[in-house]
Amino acid sequence: MLKDFRVSRREAMRLTALGVAATALPLSALAQSKGQDTLRVAVAPYLPTQSDTEKAYRPLNQFLADSVGMKLDMKVASDWAGVSTAISSGQADVALMGPWGYALCHANSGAEIFATETSDGAPTYKAIIVGRKGLDFSSFPKDAKGLSIAFGDSGGFSAWMYPQYWFNKQGIDPRSYFKYTEGVAPAAIMTSVASGQIDLGCIWDSLRWQMIHNGTITEDSHQVVYASEPLPNGGYVHRADLDKGIVSKLQDALASIDAKKARQLNIPEPNTGFVRDSHASYTVVDEMGKTLGLL
């Protein structure tokens, strides 16, 4: 059975620096390939709660397990770094995860992405920074010095890694420039900005869209201060030694999902399916990590 994947920021950085995640468990934990009867799937915490994510992504992962004739053992990670550790250490066969978590486990263990999510038909999305309503951010980030800001945990791309990279490119150390907090759940970041508890927060566009459409927040409760260029979506990653026949069948199943099938499988909007992909689409994430000294 899959374990609960929780990892501290310090541990995530230790695994990144030393590349030891793949040896965190005995080699016997990595031995399952041919002949296995259970597909062990780890899912990153995409939605506001683990139960939300469990409910939303179980039909999709059951579809994948059925496509390879296996039973499903699915676990939702407690944080974004944890799902990277799960796939790197062999506790999971495949994982649905974000771009930075993938870059970490690719560097640490040779895990490979094989299908990328599409949002409204495109395999890209945008990282965003949202601001408290009523504040003037016309010269952002110059006019935001000293304000409070919340980042996600260190395994997340949109809510942690990308904004660290972007502020670095502006010559800003966010830990000293702002009243800085990290390790906050992305949905909590969004609600905290919308309710006026904090001034700024780092999330991503599809999460904001989902929270508006499900009534958790309103569109006029905050402002979008910054939006990135299109970035590669997250997707499905397999452990380095997973049987290639299994990977091929899973990739075929994911590529068969169109917008209609995505709704049947309860995949949260605006996600519309998956496209076949490889690490070449994620080298931009590697470069960002190297710029920050994290890869």
Rank of each mutant, 00 (worst) to 15 (best):
21 A>L: 06
37 D>T: 11
22 A>F: 15
21 A>K: 05
49 T>H: 04
21 A>S: 06
37 D>G: 08
25 L>I: 12
24 A>H: 15
43 V>R: 00
19 G>L: 00
41 V>E: 00
36 Q>W: 10
18 L>I: 07
40 R>H: 09
32 Q>I: 07
39 L>C: 02
53 T>G: 02
23 T>A: 12
46 Y>H: 08
42 A>I: 02
20 V>N: 07
41 V>A: 01
23 T>Q: 11
27 L>I: 09
25 L>D: 07
29 A>I: 06
32 Q>C: 09
28 S>P: 12
41 V>T: 03
27 L>K: 14
48 P>Q: 02
19 G>H: 04
46 Y>W: 09
32 Q>F: 09
25 L>Y: 14
35 G>Q: 05
20 V>K: 07
27 L>D: 09
26 P>V: 03
44 A>K: 00
21 A>W: 15
28 S>A: 15
50 Q>Y: 08
40 R>F: 10
36 Q>A: 05
25 L>C: 12
41 V>Y: 03
44 A>L: 00
45 P>M: 00
29 A>C: 08
22 A>S: 14
34 K>G: 10
40 R>G: 05
34 K>C: 11
52 D>M: 05
51 S>T: 12
18 L>C: 12
18 L>K: 14
30 L>C: 05
19 G>P: 05
47 L>Y: 06
34 K>N: 10
51 S>C: 07
39 L>T: 00
34 K>S: 14
17 A>F: 15
52 D>L: 05
43 V>M: 02
35 G>W: 13
21 A>E: 04
50 Q>K: 09
28 S>F: 11
24 A>Q: 13
46 Y>K: 02
24 A>K: 14
26 P>C: 04
36 Q>K: 10
39 L>S: 00
54 E>Q: 11
52 D>E: 06
26 P>D: 02
23 T>R: 10
24 A>G: 12
42 A>M: 04
28 S>T: 10
29 A>R: 13
29 A>Q: 13
27 L>F: 10
28 S>R: 11
44 A>M: 01
37 D>H: 11
26 P>T: 01
33 S>Y: 12
38 T>N: 06
53 T>L: 00
38 T>D: 05
53 T>D: 01
52 D>A: 09
27 L>P: 11
49 T>D: 04
28 S>D: 10
20 V>T: 09
23 T>H: 12
53 T>P: 04
23 T>Y: 15
47 L>G: 03
40 R>E: 03
19 G>V: 01
38 T>F: 15
25 L>F: 14
46 Y>C: 03
17 A>S: 08
43 V>L: 02
30 L>T: 06
44 A>Y: 05
18 L>Q: 13
17 A>T: 06
31 A>G: 12
20 V>I: 12
36 Q>N: 07
28 S>G: 08
47 L>T: 03
26 P>K: 03
37 D>A: 08
51 S>L: 13
50 Q>W: 11
33 S>P: 13
36 Q>I: 12
52 D>F: 14
30 L>P: 05
44 A>S: 06
47 L>E: 00
44 A>G: 07
29 A>T: 10
26 P>H: 04
19 G>I: 01
23 T>G: 08
43 V>S: 00
52 D>V: 05
22 A>K: 12
49 T>M: 04
23 T>V: 09
53 T>Q: 02
41 V>M: 01
22 A>L: 13
21 A>C: 13
34 K>P: 13
54 E>G: 08
46 Y>A: 04
35 G>F: 13
38 T>H: 07
43 V>T: 02
34 K>Y: 15
37 D>L: 15
43 V>G: 00
